[in-house]
Computed example of a mutant assay.
Amino acid sequence: LGWADTLASKDNTARQYAYARMLGRNGVYTPQAVLNGRSHVNGADLAGINSRLLAMADGGEGLDVPVEARVGGDEIDIKVGAGKGKANVIVVYFDREQMVDVKQGENGGRKIAYWHAVRDVQTIGMWDGKPASFVLPASILDQGKNGGCAVLLQTMKDAETPGAILGAAAVVTGTAAD
């Protein structure tokens, strides 16, 4: 639309297209919320997101494996409970809120708040259905800044295509930008 998305990255775009393949879609859009790795809705539709998550939980597509993530001192302690199957333990680092000056296009000249924009995605280990623990340095969160991370317990359809999310937790640091 006449300007480069300052929050975009090749890795995030590749992950979004992998979700599109998994969901049987030809294209992607922004803002998009992928729910439990199984469905999607417009990311600006909070009521739709909440409604779909409730329906998914009622239909057996909720988050069934307990995942905890806590900052303690200089560490992030991650605990994954017991369940069935195998999955990757993925950490998604995000900015809680970021203001962007849109230069051109339909929103040209506006300053828009982007929430939970992903900075990086990292697989930190594997889970085999048994309780597991992981430790990361808390410094990766840019303590005191406007960010955090989500820990996802996610199956994979194949080497490049994400599948269902079985459990999740989040750690948020700092405060929202003024």
Rank of each mutant, 00 (worst) to 15 (best):
L54Q: 14
H40P: 02
Q98H: 09
E106G: 11
V34E: 13
L46Q: 12
A117L: 06
G48N: 12
L63R: 08
Y114Q: 03
I76T: 00
G37E: 07
A69Y: 06
G81W: 12
A47F: 10
E68D: 12
G27F: 15
H116R: 04
E61N: 09
H116W: 01
V34R: 08
I78Q: 06
V100I: 14
A44T: 07
F94H: 05
G62D: 04
D77H: 09
G60P: 01
N42M: 12
I76S: 04
Q32I: 08
N36Q: 11
R110G: 07
V80I: 10
A69I: 02
D45C: 08
V118P: 00
A47Y: 15
G60E: 12
G37Q: 13
A57V: 12
M99E: 14
Y29I: 04
G60S: 13
D95W: 06
N107A: 07
Q32N: 12
G73D: 03
A82S: 09
V41A: 13
G43C: 14
H116F: 04
V118I: 13
V91R: 01
V89T: 00
N36E: 10
V100P: 02
G81P: 02
V80C: 05
A33N: 02
D95V: 00
T30P: 01
D74P: 00
L54D: 15
Q104I: 13
D101P: 02
R52G: 03
G109Y: 10
G27R: 08
L53T: 01
N42Y: 09
R96C: 06
G109P: 03
G59V: 10
R52S: 15
V34M: 13
K84N: 07
K111V: 01
H40D: 11
D58P: 00
A33F: 10
E97D: 04
L23G: 00
R119A: 05
E61I: 07
H116D: 00
E106N: 13
V102F: 04
N50Y: 09
V102P: 00
A117P: 04
Y29T: 06
D74I: 03
H116Y: 02
K86L: 08
L46M: 15
Q98Y: 01
K84V: 03
D77S: 12
R25C: 04
